[in-house]
Design a protein around this nucleic acid. Structure first.
Length: 760
RNA sequence: GGGCGAUUAGCUCAGAGGUAGAGCACUACCUUGACACGGUAGGAGUCACUGGUUCGAUUCCAGUAUCGCCCACCA
């Protein structure tokens, strides 16, 4: 690549390489001849033999007794002939290999550090294009990997190759170039990071920014701790050019290490600054002052790290006040991003923002870290691997809202990654398809409303009269208020998946499955009704319309962040709002606290359960769906009885009941025995007296299932209650609930046994 | 070498200290005036393993195993 790269852009890969053991002869001491000393050489091991051409020392551990007397002596570097010292350095592990390490300060970070400690020269033997340079002597011009083979061959020819071992080790690869990178000395621009990082760490101590999920703050903090200086220059031709101008006329027209420079906003300012500093000297020498801008560009993450200012304006513009957007919007409330760029982007933004606006705190209050979409092999999707999904294919098949909803719905688990069930062969996804089906469901529910609102809108219908509300109205309004409160809380806490699931279930399982079904008969006012009956029916129709309009319009509002296009469209249809007004700009609907009614919701759940039992009995008995059958409920609980009584019209509509009768156990006994389908649900018995049409075996197995379930429950609850510790230590409410459940299960078991006995 | 996730139905995944949930797939029935991209009913799980805390653990804690990710200068 010919450019500097960041450590973050380097990927360590395990590769099968070799460890070459090379012999470096000791330089004979004065008065000795070669071979006279008992130890006339050292053996070093290396994975990159070509770098030996740049060796300037061999290091041993200072406490290694084998080499203690050799420290300070010298070796003759084979192939090159250079005399290099033997130095003692703690970095060397005496137990690895021979305990001797060749030191190449110009081509290895560790060796660089050793070189610094021992004042070793740095000999660069490789060029930026990966070939060996003139310092490599007879190997100059060879590619680095050719040079590796050539050096090994030359050492072997000289009898200095001791052995070659296979060796698995980590090699740094360039993310961009996909080839091993070479550590190389070069002059670059750096940002001193510690003062910036220290400010960020201090802010984090104060909880700024707040990471969601919280665990990512540790990743952020760790990276900002013991941070290295940041190399920000790149030798690429794209990017922001570094605003530094060299006064090349000071150094013979070329840029050297000694060339002075000025840093400024633009060339004119740079020239003014350079004139002030060097103009007089140039004039005295009769020279023209020549500037040359540094050809390097900034690291892309440096540029990206300036995002808050790129978007909102720059603080401290000369002669200007602070930009209006910056004053209004900085810091922003939330940054939404993936964990893979916490270092690259998030930390860079907080560091740079701290440099330019130290008083204002981090550039965003919250950092919401979402999961990544992974492919079917659990790999992160990336451009370079080429395992991404083209969202347009899924959008074309299922719609943009469906894709969005599916992804949001899957991110419930606190930033957990998403493995999308995407089938590459057919470009299909069950998850996205389910979201599409949901969108379709909403579309059809709204269509149903439009067909039944009589041309009115939520606004023209107004709020329903509380006194006119029916049971199902009060139920759905209570549910609406509760779902509203829950959803608001979920959005606020970034529990987006939970919000999506909650709305999905409310819309489908409650609004569509129950409420819409329950009001169908109320929305249709029979044509033959007259007088007060007609008046009452029309009033009730209006109530149903009012509730339906309110529920649906608020549902669309709550769903809007998740299904923006569809909800906007349906809302316009439902409300008749002009094209220029947007659902997106509507305030969040107020929670109707007065509508909340927990006991009503619980009672309604019992009603739903009763209806399910009836439907189940009908299915078990093999009744045709259209065939009416009488329904008898038997319960000793007065409130349940009155609920069922009050809802008998609803039950009739939803179960194809020929008639609905609610009896107490006494009334039942008085009525004598009747052949019937029977089911039990808690303390409720459900009878379908339809002699002759009964599949007795199916009914029996259904009752046996009920009995088994009740018995299992009795077993568990009784065992728990039998434990004396439970009664003593568990909260009284839990114990009471347990007793109640046991009583109910026993009642259920009893009823089931009784019915089974009657069957035989 | 450190750190972090995950392990729940055939598949993809939620969940919560008090008797296990969704979507898809599966079974049966149903073209009912919103919706077959649908409805009704149903089948399906030793919640990875081992200990601990607790009256009670699938849920909390510790360890183990497997999978995955991040960080780290051992030639």
């Amino acid at each position: 690549s010919g450019s500097a790269v960041s450590d973050l852009e380097v990927e360590m890969k395990e590769v099968e390489g070799h460890l070459w053991h090379l012999r470096y002869p000791l330089t004979p001491l004065a008065g000795e001849t070669a071979g006279e000393h008992p130890l006339d050489h050292l053996v070093v091991a290396t994975t990159r033999p070509e770098t030996m051409l740049g060796d300037t020392a061999v290091a041993v551990n200072p406490s290694d007794p084998r080499y203690a007397d050799l420290v300070g002596q010298t070796l003759t570097l084979p192939l090159v002939g250079r005399t290099i010292p033997i130095v003692a350095d703690d970095h060397v592990d005496a137990d690895f290999g021979t305990g001797c390490v060749k030191v190449t300060p110009a081509h290895d970070p560790n060796d660089f550090a050793i070189g610094q400690r021992h004042g070793l020269p740095q000999i660069t033997v490789m060029a930026k294009d990966g070939t060996m340079n003139e310092a490599a002597g007879r190997f100059a011009g060879l590619d680095r990997f050719e040079a590796r083979q050539a050096v090994v061959a030359a050492m072997e020819a000289e009898g200095l190759l001791v052995k070659t071992e296979p060796h698995r080790h980590s090699v740094p690869f360039s993310d961009r170039g996909k080839v091993p990178v070479e550590p190389l000395l070069s002059t670059q621009w750096f940002v001193r990071t510690e003062p910036l990082a220290a400010r960020c760490r201090a802010a984090l101590e104060q909880g700024e920014p707040r990471f969601v999920p919280e665990r990512w703050s540790k990743v952020y903090r760790d990276w900002l701790t013991d941070i290295r200086d940041w190399c920000i220059s790149r030798q690429l031709w794209w990017g922001h050019r570094i605003p530094a101008w060299f006064v090349v006329s000071q150094t013979g027209g070329v840029i050297t290490e000694a060339t002075p420079y000025v840093v400024a906003r633009d060339e004119a300012a740079a020239r003014a600054e350079a004139e002030a500093a060097y103009g007089a000297a140039h004039a005295a020498a009769g020279q023209e002052l020549v500037l040359e801008q540094d050809p390097d560009v900034l690291d892309t993450w440096f540029s990206s790290g300036l995002w808050p200012f790129s978007t909102l304006g720059w603080p401290g513009e000369p002669g200007g006040s602070e930009p209006a957007d910056l004053a209004r919007w900085y810091p922003t409330s939330v940054l939404v991003t993936g964990f893979d760029i916490i270092f690259f982007w998030v930390a860079r933004m907080t560091m740079l923002a701290g440099a330019f606006l130290p008083e204002a705190g981090p550039p965003f209050g919250d950092v919401y870290i979402h999961g990544l979409v992974r492919d079917e092999h659990n790999r992160k999707m990336s451009k370079s691997v080429g395992n991404g999904i083209d969202p347009l294919l899924l959008i074309e098949r299922y719609g943009a809202d469906a894709l969005r909803f599916a992804l949001v719905r899957e991110v419930a688990g606190a930033g957990q990654d998403i493995r999308l069930d995407y089938d590459r062969k057919s470009d299909t996804s069950g998850t996205v398809e389910a979201a599409r089906n949901f969108a379709n469901k909403l579309f059809n529910a709204t269509r149903f409303a439009l067909m039944n609102l009589g041309g009115e809108t939520p606004a023209s219908l107004g709020a329903p009269d509380p006194a006119a509300l029916q049971l199902s109205d009060r139920w759905i309004l209570s549910r609406l208020a509760r779902v509203n409160a829950e959803t608001a809380e979920r959005y606020n806490s970034y529990a987006l998946g939970e919000a999506a699931k909650g709305l999905y279930e409310f819309a489908w399982n409650e609004v569509c499955d129950w409420y819409l079904e329950l009001i169908k008969r109320r929305l249709q006012v029979a044509a033959d009704l007259e007088g007060v009956d007609r008046e009452a029916a029309l009033a009730d129709q209006r109530t149903a319309r009012q509730v339906l309009a309110k529920v649906l319009s608020e549902l669309l509002l709550m769903l809007h962040p998740l299904l923006p296009h569809l909800s906007e469209e349906l809302w316009h249809g439902l409300t008749g709002a002009p094209v220029a007004s947007f659902l997106a700009l509507q305030p969040w609907p107020e929670v109707d606290i007065a509508a909340l009614d927990g006991s009503l919701e619980a009672a309604f759940a019992e009603l739903i359960e009763a209806i399910r039992v009836v439907r189940n009995l009908r299915a078990v008995a093999g009744l045709k769906p259209a065939q009416p059958a009488p329904v008898r409920f038997i319960t000793g609980r007065a409130e349940l009885a009155s609920l069922l009584q009050a809802a008998s019209a609803d039950i009739t509509a939803l179960t194809r009941a020929a008639e609905v009768v609610v009896w107490s156990p006494q009334e039942t006994a008085a009525g004598g025995s009747e052949r019937a389908l029977a089911g039990v649900c808690g303390e409720l018995q459900v009878l379908l007296p339809i002699e002759g049409l009964v599949d007795l075996d199916a009914l029996r197995s259904r009752l046996e299932k009920d009995l088994a379930k009740a018995q299992k429950e009795i077993h568990g609850l009784a065992a728990r209650l039998a434990n004396p510790n439970f009664a003593d230590k568990a909260p009284p409410a839990v114990v009471a609930e347990c007793r109640a459940n046991l009583a109910e299960a026993e009642a259920q078991a009893q009823l089931a046994r009784q019915r089974l006995a009657e069957l035989s």
